[in-house]
């Protein structure tokens, strides 16, 4: 009885196996490199010209970052030494250094799920400068404003609530990177980077991943949006 189907030579079968293997390896490498290439930029804090042992860091939080795969997600932009904004949450600061941070908040706010995060902690002097006023606590129940996000590095015990923009303003920034002519609040503070080289995770404690489970999915779990690392280096 004749055999059905196509009979392949040994060489052809070996070729198919090799091609399949190469394709599989290629797919894996494509995935790995794609993942690595998609990592947000790392921005190094700028050395202060006026204060010793101090670096400056300028950041903004936008209700919609405006770029990338999820332009509508909330997220951070960080300014480098040349004044260029990078959409990232990966920051490098030196060890044993005062880190002076300025955050422009362009997003609207509301009540906190846990009002504990309204309290400032872990910063120099125990207070932040919010729009020119020193505060140790930011009222999350302020009508129209509330707290938009929080800047928290648990490993350094740094907690800074970021006062929200009133949602009814006319010049509300719709998409990032926002500029200072648009409605914003300004929070300045300084913290000590610690005496050891370490990679500290930082996050927001306002569940701002709208549309995700408990508000803690999406941007809340994405590097470059509301999750990141402070690399404390030598």
């Amino acid at each position: 009885m004749p055999r059905r189907g196509v009979s392949l030579s040994k060489g052809a079968r070996a070729g198919i196996v090799l091609i399949s293997f190469a394709a599989a390896i290629g797919l894996i490498l494509f995935g790995i490199f794609g993942y690595l290439r998609s990592s947000p930029d790392v921005v190094t804090a700028t050395q202060s010209t006026s204060q010793p042992n101090t670096v400056n860091l300028v950041m903004q939080v936008d209700g919609a970052v405006g770029v990338g795969a999820h332009p509508n997600w909330v997220g951070y932009w960080v300014q480098d030494a040349n004044g260029v904004w990078h959409q990232t949450t990966l920051v490098k600061v030196p060890v044993n250094t005062n880190v002076h941070v300025t955050v422009y908040e362009y997003d609207s706010g509301g009540a906190l799920r846990n009002p504990e995060w309204a309290k400032v902690s872990g910063v120099s002097g125990g207070q932040v400068n919010l729009n020119g006023t020193e505060d140790a606590i930011v009222n999350p129940n302020s009508p129209g404003n509330g707290i938009a996000h929080t800047f928290v590095i648990p490993g350094l015990n740094v907690t800074v609530p970021l006062y929200g923009v009133n949602g009814s303003v006319k010049n509300f920034c719709q998409t990032g990177p926002c500029n200072l002519s648009e409605a914003h609040t300004t929070t300045s503070f300084a913290f000590f980077s610690g005496s050891s080289v370490h990679s500290y995770h930082w996050q927001c404690f306002v569940p701002c991943g709208l549309g995700y489970l408990e508000g803690n999915g999406g941007p809340m779990q994405s590097l470059g949006n509301m999750a990141g690392f402070f690399e404390v280096v030598k």
């Binding site: 706010g109 509301g110 009540a111 906190l112 799920r113 999350p140 701002c208 549309g211 508000g215």
Partner: peptide, 9 residues
């Protein structure tokens, strides 16, 4: 969690 995102506890 009534508000999904944000909201007091």
């Amino acid at each position: 969690s009534y508000l999904g995102a944000g909201g007091g506890y």
